[in-house]
Structures are given as C-alpha cells and as structure tokens.
Design a protein around this nucleic acid. Structure first.
Ligand SMILES: [Mn+2]
Ligand SMILES: [Mn+2]
Ligand SMILES: [Zn+2]
Ligand SMILES: [Zn+2]
Lengths: 144, 144
DNA sequence: CTTGTAATGAGAACTACTCTCGTTTAGGTT
DNA sequence: AACCTAAACGAGAGTAGTTCTCATTACAAG
C-alpha cells in the first residue's frame, strides 16, 4: 500500500510544480475511479473543477509522470494514474460502441514472456521502448 | 498473394459503395506505404486528393472493413489497410517524439498464447472481443 | 503583514476532422 | 449514343475536444 499523494507530490516537486488542492482532487478522483476517466466524467464527479484548469493540471500531472493519458477513437481522451504510482501493471478493454475503458490484467507468466519478446523486437530495431500497451477492442456488457 | 483491389471492391459493394478512382488511389497508397499514414502524409503523396474527400473516403473504407484507423497521442490519426486484406497480423511501434508508427510482428507461438489468454479474459468479463492491439511506445531511431 | 511567483478560470483561439451543398462523374436504360 | 439518376466529389463552412490568454486569486517565503 503506497501513499499515492506523497508520490504525486514528490514527482511534481521534481518538476518544479506544486501539489495544489485541484491537483490533489484530480489524483483522488482517478484513484477512486475503477478505471480511466474522460474529462466530462471527471468534471461530473467534481463540479468545482474548472474545465481549463482540469485540462492544464492533467497535462502537468502527465508531464510529471503522475497521470497517464489514453487516447481512443471516440474523441475523448481518458486519464488514469500512472502505473508507477499504483504499482499495478494492467491493460484496457475498450468498448467500440460507448467508448468506455476498463482495466484487466494478464497472467503473470504470459506478461513476462510478452515483455521478453517485446524487448527482443525493440533491440533488433534500435527502438528505445518506454512502455507497452495492450488493448482489447470489442463490445462491453452494457452495450451488447 | 491476394488481390487487394478485388477484396476492397467486394467489401465496398457489400456496403453499397463504389470502388472509385479516389478510393483506389488511397488503397494503393496505403498498400505501397511501409506503415500507417497520416492524412497529411497521404495528401503529400497524392496531391490530386482533396482533403475533405480523402477523410470521407477513409471513413467509408473503414466502415467497409478495408481500412483501419489508428489513433495516437500526436493528434493525427493514422490509416493502414485492414489486416484481413493484407493477411498479415502485426503490431505497432509508436514514437512518442515524432508520432511515427511502424509495424512489427510477434513470434507466432507467443501470439498464439497471447490470443488464448485474451479470449479467457474476455469470457470471464462478458466482453465481446473484436480484436486486440499491442503497441510499443518509445523513441524511434530517427529521434534518439 | 508584505511581496513575488505560481495557479486559477472564464472565455477566446486552435485545429484535426466532419458536414454542406452545388457541381461533376459514372453506371444503367432506352 | 444520348439520357437519366443517384452517387461521388471538393471547396469551404462548421464542429468540438483541447489548448491558450490574461486578469485575478492563492500560496509560500521572509
Ligand atoms: Mn503488459
Ligand atoms: Mn497480436
Ligand atoms: Zn460499451
Ligand atoms: Zn520518432
């Protein structure tokens, strides 16, 4: 059990940024949510957040490595806490009908061999891998 | 060796659409390109294409299952031929600096076990999987 | 407190993309 | 060939998610 807020503050400070009330509210919301949130979803949960500030703070939190931005086909970006903060590597099920995004995990053994194979692919091509991203595209229970 | 254009025409007809000169040009360009193309890249290769028509035709080709749209963080969507046409399942290396997208493939054995694991994940959650998508995020040789 | 700097937020601006609508093209019929 | 009709075209206007501007506010240091 890590202290999300302490980590967030440390990372922001390393970036010359403050951990303000608004930023804490965003981190709190993303931590509480069961999966990635779009900006409308975030604002709906916390009416006191201004849209422009929320976007700006999400960008700052992303630059500091606190928040991860997920871009899907439905036009709305989604935001979640960076996996380094939650210490929970996972992937996403993306509904092609409603655009909702949910988390899932792979068996550890498969994740390991996948990671190894990806490293091999990257080495052969001089590509410096920062991360990988595995999405399931389909239709969620609510939309079928 | 499949006939891309015959397949494209069949799929369009099944959707009540014609395989016009512009659409053939787009399919040809995507086939020739070594990887996914953004719209600016496509228009640069074929100056006679109008932007509005190119976007419209790409949407129609996507609906017919001829073209696949890839959405990245750099604001520009990328387009490639659907894997059903090329009969070549692959994944993408995405450069977080310049936004370029390139293809790569996994070892067949790994791809198999991955697919099996994904089916299991999907079944447990009532999620109807249409496809999966595996991206490597990092820095390409040109940007490092 | 006072003061300097960063953060805020309402609204304007930006831009990738989509829509509109008058014109052109092309497949089918005579 | 000539005609007809519906689809496709394309220049430009419109849309919408996101970013920027700048006057105001909050906060940390002394
Ligand atoms: Mn993984
Ligand atoms: Mn695969
Ligand atoms: Zn759904
Ligand atoms: Zn690059």
């Amino acid at each position: 059990m890590v202290d999300i807020h302490a980590l967030a503050e440390t990372r922001l400070r390393a970036d010359g940024q403050r951990y303000t009330r608004n930023r804490r509210t965003i981190v709190e919301a993303l931590d509480r949510a069961g999966g990635p949130l779009s900006l409308p979803q975030l604002l709906h949960r916390h009416r006191q957040l201004a849209q422009s500030s929320a976007y700006r703070n999400l960008a700052i939190l992303e630059a500091a490595g606190v928040v991860h931005r997920i871009v899907t086909n439905d036009g709305f970006a989604r935001f979640e806490l960076a996996q380094a903060l939650t210490e929970h590597h996972h992937h996403h099920r993306i509904c092609s009908t409603c655009g909702s995004v949910e988390d899932f995990t792979l068996p550890a053994a498969l994740e390991d061999s996948l990671e190894k194979a990806l490293r091999r692919v990257a080495t052969k091509s001089d590509f410096q891998v920062a991360s990988h991203q595995l999405d399931l595209i389909g239709v969620c229970p609510g939309c079928s």
